[in-house]
Simulated scan of single mutants.
Amino acid sequence: MIGIVGIVIIFAMVFGGYVAAGGKMGIILKSLPFEMIMIGGAAVGAFILSNDMASIKHALKDIGKVFKGPKWRPDDYRDLLCLLFELIRLQRQNPVAIEEHIEDPENSSIFGKYPKILHDHEAVEMICDTLRSASMNYDDPHQVEEVLEKQLEANYHHAMHSSHAIQNVADAMPALGIVAAVLGVIKTMGSIDQPPEVLGKMIGGALVGTFLGVFLAYGFIGPFASRIKAVVDEDSHFYKLIREVLVANLHNHATNICIEVGRQNTPHHIRPSFSALEEALKSVKSEAA
């Protein structure tokens, strides 16, 4: 919703200010289709040329993040802590019983309580692989933390590709606008024998290309890339929480302490309160009993 508000404000302020200052929209509207064909078409072509098909699909899908925002909400962080609490407690009480949950999470009664987390392959894989490693005596906390850190870095790098690809398009848009403007000037020079009022309109139409290139770069495409990066950064805290809790578990801290370590390392605006988490954990304990 906030993304749509931003777009409305951009259009209203730019074109509203232009019209209020006495500018006429006619010349812009007349030139807009042709300039958009040149600038937009060149931008799309350059985007396709510089990315493979998987990256293109990923970037187009990630544009939705501008309007949807982060995938993980504060309630999801609470659910994640509850899920980890159940798994860690079961692993310590009955190391054999945990295997059915980490080997087949799709049919796990514990994972099944948290469908949103279950449907996230990255989160489930990180949890199950780490718990499986601990059950195989690969439980050096420092080694596991290093492995998880590298996994998080690789996943983050992949998630950020869309932002980089779209930002590259934004960086190219002003230059593509100049290309369109130069073509407009060439067209104008071919009609140099026309009266001044005709030449004025042709030059104005050519300058629309420069305007569009800069306007789209800094008003839309660049902010889109920045917003995608911000959403990726926000969602990355969810996976960092998994790392913090599971590494604390390998240090043999009490289960409640492991969960509190994860909670404390979550940014304040998405961190579940101590009382809310305590109530959720009590509910988990009562269900298990």
Rank of each mutant, 00 (worst) to 15 (best):
C128Q: 00
N137Q: 06
L246S: 04
S236Y: 10
G40A: 03
V169R: 08
T266K: 02
M53H: 10
Y218I: 07
R243C: 06
K113V: 13
A159F: 01
S50D: 05
M25R: 05
P141S: 10
G112R: 05
D139L: 12
A225Y: 08
A12Q: 08
V261S: 09
S108N: 00
Y77G: 05
N94S: 12
V214T: 02
M126V: 02
E197S: 11
L29I: 15
V214H: 14
F211H: 00
N137F: 13
N94H: 02
N51W: 14
A248W: 01
F15T: 07
I88V: 02
R73P: 00
Q264P: 11
E145N: 10
A165V: 01
G204H: 01
I4N: 06
A12E: 08
L199H: 03
G45E: 12
Q91S: 09
S283A: 07
I63F: 02
Y114E: 14
A46C: 03
S163R: 05
E106W: 09
I2A: 13
M136L: 15
A134H: 12
K187H: 15
G222R: 12
S286A: 11
I259L: 04
K71D: 09
K285S: 14
A154Y: 06
G213Y: 03
R263W: 06
M189K: 03
A12D: 03
T255Q: 15
R227F: 14
S191M: 11
M53W: 14
F67G: 14
A230H: 08
Y138W: 14
L84V: 06
I2Q: 15
I88G: 09
M126S: 01
S55R: 10
K229I: 10
V8S: 01
P223T: 10
V19H: 04
